[in-house]
Amino acid sequence: MKRLLDAWFAPAPAERLAAVRLMLGAFTLVYLATQLPLWFADAQFHAGDFHPLGVVRLLDGPLPRGLRLALPLVTMGLAVTFTLGLAHRWLAPVFALALLFTLTYRNSWGMPFHTENLLVLHALVLAIVPAADAWSVDARGRAAAAHERYGWPLRALAVITIIAYVLAGIAKLRLGGWAWTDGDALREQIAIDNLRKHLMGAPMSPIAATFLEHTWLMHAMAIGTMIVELGAPIALVHRRAALAWSVAAWGFHVGVLALMAIVFPYQLIGLAYAPLLRCERPIAWLIARGRRWRGR
């Protein structure tokens, strides 16, 4: 037990946790900005289509238009303070709750998406840990030494990612049993999803039809999917296993993009797996390059 606890609380550099904060905050800002047209699409927010989920169940009905439009804008403002690491202890929880409410509200019209869950869950954890002890306005250039208080939050974020994948695998087993791995369900899903997009006048995968002709490919992809999802806990065993699993999971989302034109942005950019990796290194490299450039 002691060894397990020591491993869980192994020290990590403050910069690694700060890197996750920086990337998540910047991602949220850009993501919400690209989604703004959706918030202005009044036709989407027909009162009859309002099916509140999660925290949005607290509402009696849809928000007035002005308040609805304020949601992403306020959250974007808070994303700036979160990214900068400004008054993190006070403003980060407000940001995380705003993001939770904003994205839950957006998911309360028709059907829940599964592309934003990890973003929100990671933000909620980052908001209550010392993620602004480096590379932040709060730190003001001070360097914090590696400490266990920066290690466990990264592992908690990783556990959230891993459980999400395992749940996806379990859902397939609960609904289709091991027969899901024969590839028929995946083939049907890919065909239906692409036809749905075609009939709705939206872009569909240019290669799906070719794949649908080869049932053995679907079989192989279904097995691969199940291995990635149910095998996710292996990422906690060792750093190399974490890297290998992250690449495999990322590849799964590339496959989903290629075959169904479904974008999981948080996963495709790699942020979902950042807590498993030495994600501070690219940022440290960029900062060093910037300093060298300024020093010339």
Partner: peptide
Amino acid sequence: AAIAVAWPLTRHPVAGDSFPLSTYPMFATR
């Protein structure tokens, strides 16, 4: 965090889906 994220296991994979705590039922049904 771990219990909350795993909590949807107690619900039906499709009918019990929510946000952000999800059963992740995408691509699962025949």
